[in-house]
Each structure stands twice: as structure tokens, then as C-alpha cells.
């Protein structure tokens, strides 16, 4: 299993990278390569050119302020996970990242690359969607911000245009009266999840007034369900909107079962988290 031939560019400025990408219809961006290189080796992808962004300057940042966490396109999962400021500003980022592959893969793979790769079984696309974050993209035509709700078009398909490079992802900070939690079931720790669930709840006094749940690996895109009005049966409400899929890893029935098991657990954990933060 070896990749098919391709031309290779390693630009040292973003402008150069964008011009090359715009000029070659069959070109693809290479970031950490932790998803792309296996696809090349299995010849599931055969781009005419790879534009390696690893030598671009100023894209390795993880910066935090009151608004939230900004992650540059070359920040590796491991670097984002190690940031105590990011974990303080938006704890769900680290909670989910600890479940992304193994440390060795996290040393090379980028969080932004994982988001634009748009795998429904990946943690970070769902987290970005649940938190209502966004991705900043650049092209020779200019820059734009894509809200997470408009980013995921289908399985492994984002709404980035062919000539666009994602430069930064933005995860909004956790509000003072809010809490988050994340849990997934996978065959082995570090494997892709059979089902993963994240919750974001907001309290007023001791009451949950808003609750949203994010699901990965259940349908063929990350799905977010607002269960604020159905707290008596949140899993039922979620399943009404989810379409569990069958694949070699799990049956649709088993996925539905995991949704029923994980939903109340994660919701309870997020509610506890919100209470702890209010009492802290």
C-alpha cells in the first residue's frame, strides 16, 4: 500500500499556499497527515498535488481570552490538550481531546485538520458544533468565518471551497452558569468511538433551563439536539432526531441503545459540573 504519485509543495507563506491551491484543481492540503496519509496509502485519495502547510508561520497558536479559545491550523491535538488556559476557558475541548486517538497520533494530528476532515466519528467536529464555534478560512478571494452549524455537509464533507485553507478554529468560552461533560464508548481506548455524547447545560438557580446534546458516530454527520423542553426523556427526544447507522463497527440498534445509556449519564455529569462551578 503506497500512495500514487503527486506533486509536492512546501510553501513558506500563506499567500503562496493559497495561490498554489487556487491554481491546481486536484490539489489537497497536508496538515498532520494523520487522516490524509492513510487515505493516500490505501489509494482512497489520489490528489495531483499536496500543499504541505507545516512550514507556514504563525499557525501553531492556542490563545485564550474571555470570548473563548482560538486554535491555529498547525496546533497539534497534544498541544491543545496540554493548554491549561484552554481547559479553564472551555473544559469540553480537553475532555473530548483526551479521547482523540492515542498520544502518538495526537503529537502530529491537528485539531483544525480534524474539524475540516469532518468525520462523523471524530470528537472535535461535534464539540465545535455543540459549542456553536466557528472556523476562519482564507483563500485568494479573501477570508470568511464559517459557523459550525454551516460547516458539516455530509460524511467527510465540509463546506470549505476547494481553494480555501482553514487557518483557525474558535471554541466559545463556557458561560459562568453552565457545565459540560463528554463520554464515549469505543472498543479500545483511543479507537474511534461507536457512540460519543457531549452535553452543555445552563442553570438558573438549581434548575436546568437549557440543555443541548451533541452526538458523534451515531449519524453520518455530527448532530446536536436541544433537549431543554424534554428533560423527562432526553434520550427519546434525541433519538427522534438521530438516524443511527449500521456499519461494520456496530448495528443501528446497538447505537440507539448506547444513546439511551449515555444520554442521561452525560446530562447528569454536565449538570453536576455546572453546580460545582457555581459553588466554586
Amino acid at each position: 500500500m503506497k500512495p500514487a504519485p503527486f506533486a509536492y509543495l512546501r510553501p513558506s507563506t500563506l499567500e503562496e499556499a493559497l495561490a498554489a491551491l487556487a491554481g491546481e484543481q486536484g490539489a489537497k492540503v497536508l496538515a498532520g497527515g494523520q487522516s490524509l496519509v492513510p487515505l493516500l496509502s490505501m489509494r482512497l485519495a489520489a490528489p495531483s498535488m499536496l500543499i504541505d502547510i507545516n512550514a507556514l508561520p504563525d499557525l501553531g497558536h492556542v490563545t485564550c481570552d474571555e470570548a473563548g479559545v482560538r486554535v491555529g491550523a498547525l496546533a497539534r491535538h497534544a498541544h491543545v490538550l496540554a493548554s491549561t488556559e484552554a481547559a479553564a476557558a472551555q473544559p469540553l475541548v480537553a475532555m473530548a481531546l483526551a479521547n482523540v486517538a492515542h498520544p502518538t497520533i495526537r503529537n502530529r494530528g491537528t485539531t483544525v485538520g480534524s474539524i475540516v476532515h469532518a468525520d462523523a466519528a471524530a470528537e472535535m467536529p461535534m464539540v465545535l458544533r455543540l459549542l456553536e464555534g466557528s472556523v476562519d478560512v482564507a483563500s485568494v478571494r479573501g477570508r470568511r468565518t464559517i459557523p459550525a452549524a454551516e460547516l458539516f455537509a455530509g460524511p467527510l464533507e465540509s463546506t470549505l471551497a476547494h481553494d480555501e485553507i482553514a487557518v483557525e478554529a474558535f471554541f466559545p468560552a463556557l458561560a459562568p452558569r453552565a457545565g459540560v461533560a463528554f463520554q464515549e464508548i469505543s472498543r479500545r481506548h483511543g479507537d474511534y468511538a461507536l457512540v460519543g455524547v457531549a452535553a452543555l447545560v445552563e442553570l438558573e438557580g438549581d434548575e436546568v433551563v437549557r440543555a443541548r446534546l451533541g452526538y458523534l458516530s451515531v449519524s453520518d454527520v455530527p448532530v446536536v439536539v436541544d433537549v431543554s423542553g424534554s428533560l423527562a426523556d432526553p434520550a427519546g427526544a434525541a433519538l427522534a432526531e438521530l438516524e443511527p447507522v449500521d456499519d461494520i463497527h456496530a448495528t443501528a440498534d446497538y447505537r440507539a441503545h448506547l444513546v439511551r445509556v449515555l444520554t442521561p449519564r452525560v446530562l447528569a455529569a454536565a449538570t453536576d459540573h455546572a453546580r460545582q462551578r457555581m459553588n466554586a
Binding site: 509536492y8 512546501r10 497536508l30 497527515g33 494523520q34 496519509v37 492513510p38 496509502s41 499536496l50 504541505d52 507545516n54 497534544a78 498520544p103 502518538t104 497520533i105 503529537n107 502530529r108
Partner: peptide, 16 residues
């Protein structure tokens, strides 16, 4: 080890 950190050499290109 790439700059001291473990990485998969089968998931990196030599040119990179």
C-alpha cells in the same frame, strides 16, 4: 521520535 516526540513514520512523508 520526531524532535523527541513519538510519531508514526508511516504517516509522515520524508519530504515533510
Amino acid at each position: 521520535l520526531v524532535d523527541g516526540a513519538p510519531m508514526r513514520s508511516c504517516l509522515m512523508l520524508a519530504v515533510s
